[in-house]
């Protein structure tokens, strides 16, 4: 596929718009949450809505959601980056093909299908939700790790080999540092993907903000689903922003 895949390119906007550009997102997120607060506060809540839309419930669900996301992202990174390095180092064409086509296919597998399938096969609960979310998020990181390493200018690796660095030394002094922006872009994608798919965990008793969302729908209470919908969206945009911050600050100087 010749297409640049969504959000997997290193962020270039950050440099162009400068530090000020980085402040726009949190400002927008804050404004959105304020509007939500004002709107929810202006509604006449019945007893069911009041039981769901209150600080305590929201707080605990946000906490669960963040926890779930952090665990999944940490696992994703721990699995995908070493695996990506191993596949690149092995120079195995088959491994590369499998990863890249899985990466394309993975986008088409509906996350909801994957989560429910795993729940049926394993069991319901947080553990299964973590497995499903990690399985889903591993692909972009794995793929970007490989693509990032392979994307390093062959002139540079030849120069490094030519001066007598071993394969591993070339990997750690030249290839990995230069692949950092691409790898980080993959991590950012995975982070957003995880935050965004985590509500589905509530369908299999995995907790998180999905609980409120689905409650609102099942009980036909738009106030509840809108509240939790906006919260999930804010969290995803926040995660994306944090990813952008990481990309900007961890990018090696000089490139």
């Amino acid at each position: 596929m010749t297409a640049p895949v969504t959000a997997q390119r290193p962020a270039r906007a950050a440099r162009g718009t400068g530090r000020a550009g980085l402040l726009v997102r949190p400002a927008l997120i804050g404004a959105g949450l304020l509007v939500l607060w004002w709107w929810a506060g202006s509604q006449q809540l019945d007893s069911i809505e009041a039981r769901n839309v209150n600080g305590e419930v929201i707080g605990s669900q946000v906490l669960e959601h963040v926890e779930l996301t952090l665990i999944c992202t940490a696992l994703t990174i721990a699995i995908a980056i070493p695996l990506g390095i191993a596949v690149s180092l092995s120079r195995s064409r088959a491994g590369r093909l499998v990863v890249l086509s899985l990466g394309n296919l993975g986008q088409a597998i509906p996350s909801i299908g994957l989560i429910v399938l795993l729940a049926l096969v394993i069991s319901i609960g947080v553990g299964t939700a973590v497995i499903a979310l990690v399985a889903y998020a591993v692909l972009p990181v794995l793929r970007n790790t490989m693509v990032g390493i392979e994307g390093v200018d062959p002139v540079l690796t030849e120069a490094a080999r030519g001066m007598g660095l071993s394969r591993l030394a070339v990997l750690f002094t030249v290839e990995l540092p230069l692949a950092v922006p691409v790898i980080l872009a993959g991590v950012r994608t995975a982070l957003v993907l995880t935050v965004a798919s985590a509500p589905l965990a509530a369908l299999i008793d995995g907790g998180g903000l999905g609980e409120g969302l689905f409650t609102g729908l099942t009980l036909n209470r738009p106030v509840i689903s809108v509240t939790f919908g906006v919260l999930v969206a804010a969290l995803a945009l926040l995660a994306d922003w944090l990813g952008l911050l990481a990309e900007t600050s961890l990018r090696p100087k000089g490139i």
Partner: peptide, 25 residues
């Protein structure tokens, strides 16, 4: 052009369940 891509990019970060939950209103 940057505005168009960042705006549409921000759309894509909104979780689908969240967007659907809001759109039914």
């Amino acid at each position: 052009a940057a505005l168009a891509t960042t705006t549409t990019g921000a759309f894509l970060t909104i979780p689908s369940v969240a967007l659907l939950g809001v759109l039914i209103a």
